[in-house]
Computed example of a mutant assay.
Amino acid sequence: MRNPSEENFYFPAEWHPHEATWLSFPINTDTWEERLERIYPAYFKLIETIALSEKVRINANDAKTIELINGLLEKFEISKSNIELYEHRTNDSWCRDHGPGILVNRNNAERLIIDWEYNAWGGKYPPYNNDNEIPQKIAKVLQLDFVSPGIIMEGGSVEFNGRGTVMTSKSCLLNKNRNANLNQKQIEEALIKYYGVEQVLWIEDGIVGDDTDGHIDDTVRFVSENKVITMVEHNKSDANHAILKENLDLLKKMRLLDGKPLDIIEIEMPKPVVDSGERLPASYANFCMTNGHVIVPTYRCDNDEKALEVIQSCFPERKVVGIDSTEIIWGLGSFHCLSQQEPSPNFV
C-alpha cells in the first residue's frame, strides 16, 4: 500500500485553492423527518454561494434525485453553469465525513484520495454502506488513485493548518466505537502516515448535542497556519461552558512545529437552539470555506452579527456570508458537515 507521507503528499488547509466543493444531496427522512423540504432554501443558498467561485459537485442518490435537484435549481433561480450532478447512491447528506480526503503532492501536484472507512459515527445510523463507497466513486470520476487504510475516520474530526499540523479531539478519535483495536499512538501514526502531517494536537471534547462524539469542526478551526478560532460559552450555567473552557486552556498550552503558540480568537456560542425539547449542536465554527467566501451558519440570535464580524476579520480576502441554519441544524450538522473540498492540483 502506498505511504502518502513518504511520497510527500499532504492534506491542504481548507483555504488552499479549490477545484470544487462536493456535497451529498439530502434524502434521508430519518435525519430530516418532515423538515426535509424546509431545509431547501438554506441548502440551495449554500449551493449558490459555493458556485460563485468554484464548481459544486453533488452526489445525487438516483435519477429521481437529479430531477429534483434540477427542478429546485430552477425554482431558486440558480445558474447550473458551475454545478455538476453525479448519480452516486448515498445514505445521508454529511459529505464532510463520508466524502474523500484528497491529498496534493508537494513535488508534482499529483492528487491522491484517502478512502477511509465510514461507520456513521460509531454505527449510530445504519445503513451507511452507500456513503462508505463514495470516496472510491469520486476517485473514479476524477480518475485519481486511492489508498484504503482500513481505518474509520471522518473529515469533521480533523482540522489542518496545511503546514504539518492536524488537530482533533480525544472524545471522537479515541472512542472505541470507531477503531477499538487502535490506541492513541496508533491513531497518531495513521494521521501522520495518511494525511502527510508531522504533529497531532489534541483537545478533549465537543459541544452538547453533537452526535459525532465531539467533532472538532464545531469547536476549533484553523483560519491560518498559526491562528485558530475557538468557541467559548460565557454563561457558566450552560453545559458547554466547562467543555469549551477546558479546550481553550489546552489551546493556550499548545505549540506548533516552530515552537510558537497558537494565535487564539474566541467566538461566543450562539444562544442555545432547542427544538422539540432537544438541544441542537449549533455553532458558528461549522463554517465552510470556498475560493471566494466563508459560509457561516447563523441561528436567528443576537450573537450572529458579532460572530460574522470576527470571522470576517480572519479572512480579509474572502467575503463572509451568513446563512440561516436553524432548519439545517435539526439534522445535527451544518455547512462544514455538509461539504468536502476538492483541492486544486495547480497550487502546492
Rank of each mutant, 00 (worst) to 15 (best):
C172P: 03
P135N: 07
M167D: 06
A109K: 15
G123E: 11
S148H: 15
K124I: 12
P127M: 06
A139V: 05
G122L: 11
T165P: 06
G123Q: 11
D131Q: 08
L112K: 02
N130D: 15
L174S: 01
A139C: 08
Q143I: 01
Q143S: 15
A120W: 04
K140G: 00
D131I: 07
V104L: 08
V104G: 05
Y128M: 03
K137S: 00
G150K: 10
Y118M: 02
N132Q: 14
G122P: 10
D145Q: 14
N107K: 15
G164I: 08
L112H: 02
G150D: 10
P135A: 06
W121R: 02
T165W: 06
N132I: 00
G122R: 12
R163E: 14
N105K: 11
L144E: 04
I113L: 09
N175W: 01
P127L: 06
N107A: 14
F146P: 00
L142E: 15
T165R: 04
I134K: 01
T165D: 03
N129Q: 14
W121M: 06
L144Q: 08
I138P: 04
V158H: 12
N108Q: 11
M153F: 14
R111C: 02
G155D: 10
S169N: 07
I151F: 13
V166G: 03
F146L: 13
E154K: 10
L173K: 01
N130Q: 13
R111S: 11
G155Q: 09
W116V: 09
A109H: 15
T168N: 05
I134Y: 07
L174K: 10
L142H: 06
K140N: 11
I134V: 15
I152V: 15
N175Y: 04
E159Y: 09
T165C: 08
W121N: 03
L112S: 01
N108H: 09
R106W: 01
F160A: 05
N107G: 03
Y125V: 02
S169K: 03
N130P: 00
P149D: 04
D131N: 12
G155M: 09
P127W: 06
S171P: 00
